[in-house]
Design a protein around this nucleic acid. Structure first.
Lengths: 199, 199, 199, 199
DNA sequence: GATGAATGAGTATTCATTCAT
DNA sequence: CATGAATGAATACTCATTCAT
């Protein structure tokens, strides 16, 4: 019978949304409490009131961003039973435009860059990728047991796929637009499939 | 008999070195002129004397870092004539530990993250990767003409390799130490070779 | 029953008072936020808290000074009905010591000098003198209708009086003390009266 | 047989010219050595080289400006013998546009404002007006002895004229353009003549 | 729960000036 | 005669945070 979200949570959510916006515009150096407050039309002390510290605010923002990143990621393929279709859909998803576009690239790399100096952030990222890898390993094992993939070191192949996906995402911000990204994405997906199935 | 560097250049170089150090320790938000000066044992005004603006200092730092990144990168394979050995050495280099360790990861991703909001930085990164890609395309074409690689879309395969390399570099900072990196690196290199040579 | 001034206004007033003091002592070049704060026994950031910008602080100071200048200026003569007495009192006031001493000369000329480069300040000064002139024109017209002054171009005569008054004020700061000023003031008043009444 | 100006004097002159320009644009607060140097295309240390101190530079600038102000001022009437014409020409000059336009108003009032806090500057201004007054007293006495002016307190009338002239100059910068100034100038001149000659 | 006054350390940059060349 | 490296204090302003209401 509990209210699922109380007022404070809503407020916090609202603040984090604005934080992310300012972060995207101004980078981590420029994303000050004052600016976030200004954009919200409140006073800096309100933000402190809810998070007590900027450090804390940052940590919660990181969670906020990474949760977004993960939440929608691997839904689609879950219900498909045919292993071939299932693998295909999975790869389509992670090499596709939608996923990467989910989270503002800038915000994601802000977290990544932050992880170099902030242990808590680093831990969160590690967990995220650990879960991602586990998921992939599971999927690969499934394909192996179904005979779709003959021989594989699932651990290494999962790493391979993650590397490829992240490389794509990294490279995207350097070499241009959505169209190029889409093309390269489907090329890489093909290669990943080749490697997995040795075909 | 000309002086290769005059006093100012030496000083600037020195300042940029210290800038990079502080950047690695404190991140972009924390790398203030005052801190850099303090670490050098000088006054902030001296840094301004040489760069007049922090913005300018940052741009020169980006050049400084990216030049380092590029300079040593692709030397080794250049003199090897045997195409098979040559390709092998090239891949060893770019998937190896040394290259990526050349530049402090944090500094490199600082540049990358900066490129989201700073056009000049973005342009510099784009150029860097354009040159990298051109180099790879050349090498692939060479292998094709020598019969080592049978069929290839060199443009796309270059993109593939870069993605894989950058993915490795990205992933490295998340999943742990040098040893793991080395293993994953050589696994990815193998896969890259497989894809190129269809073996 | 409303509070006539809330805390912020009181604080602002206090700050402006101190600003004016420092201005008188150190001139515009020397009147830094830090010095004003120091004299108040507070921190520079507090002043910024209330005015957000030095520019804004200056504008409010100008208003502050000019309002002082205008407020007490033309009160005395207002209630006198006899036109001769009334004109006399008016001239006594504006050529007298009290009025000019009201505002620190230095502060007033600081505003004047500032008006050369600051449009807002210029506009405020223009308004001040426009009102002053209108007031004088009215008075002259009154004297004309009462037969005290026979022929006059009220506009030009108002300009004449203002010029004389401001000339006196200007000249005062150059040629010495109160006593001399008082003498010259009453001499000029006499001449002004002569011109107006053609006697 | 001495060179009338050596190189140093020319350089100093050049510097002071630029100083005045910057002063007009930026006010005293903004007229820094660095900016003057920049506008000249030299280095700050050069200015210091010639004036050793900014204080000194300012004093020399004040002399520079006030000399300009005085130099051309009272030339025209000097050679006229007919006393009526002579007085008339004198008044035309000092109430005319040319004189006041000689020196940039802003620069002149910069000196005036500076005199509040700088004794040396104050002394120089006092001398200037003392000479001005002496000159006027002489002229008035001349007119008296020639019968053109019947009764006068030359000292006070000189003060009267100076007040009027300075009032005009002050008022000008507030109420608008050259045309208005010209009109008011000739009106005030007329009044001055009236007062002097009691006509 | 929210506001805003207050603090004090911090920011990039400018200042006049000194010194060595 | 001129340059420019170097200094150190000063500038306006921003920062995260505390506190009282």
């Amino acid at each position: 019978m509990a209210r699922t979200k109380d007022k404070a949570d809503i407020r916090k959510f609202e603040i984090l949304e604005h934080f992310q916006q300012v972060l995207a515009k101004e980078g981590f150096e420029g994303a000050s409490i004052a600016k976030i407050a200004k954009q919200m039309g409140t006073h800096p002390s309100l933000l402190i009131h809810y998070f007590s510290t900027k450090e804390e605010m940052i940590i919660e923002l990181v969670d906020f961003i990474l949760e977004k990143y993960e939440s929608m990621a691997l839904q689609k393929s879950r219900e498909i039973l045919n292993p071939e279709q299932r693998l295909n859909t999975l790869l389509d998803t992670i090499f596709g435009v939608d996923w990467i576009s989910l989270v503002d690239s800038s915000a994601f790399y802000a977290c990544y860059y932050l992880s170099f100096r902030n242990r808590k952030v680093k831990e969160r990222l590690e967990k995220l990728y650990k879960r991602f890898k586990e998921y992939l390993v599971n999927e690969i094992n499934l394909c192996v047991s179904e005979g779709l993939i003959k021989e594989s070191d699932p651990e290494k192949d999962a790493d391979f796929i993650i590397s490829l996906v992240e490389g794509l995402s990294f490279y995207r911000n350097i070499t241009g637009g959505k169209q190029k990204y889409r093309e390269l994405g489907s090329y890489l997906k093909e290669k990943a499939l080749q490697i997995l199935t040795k075909s």
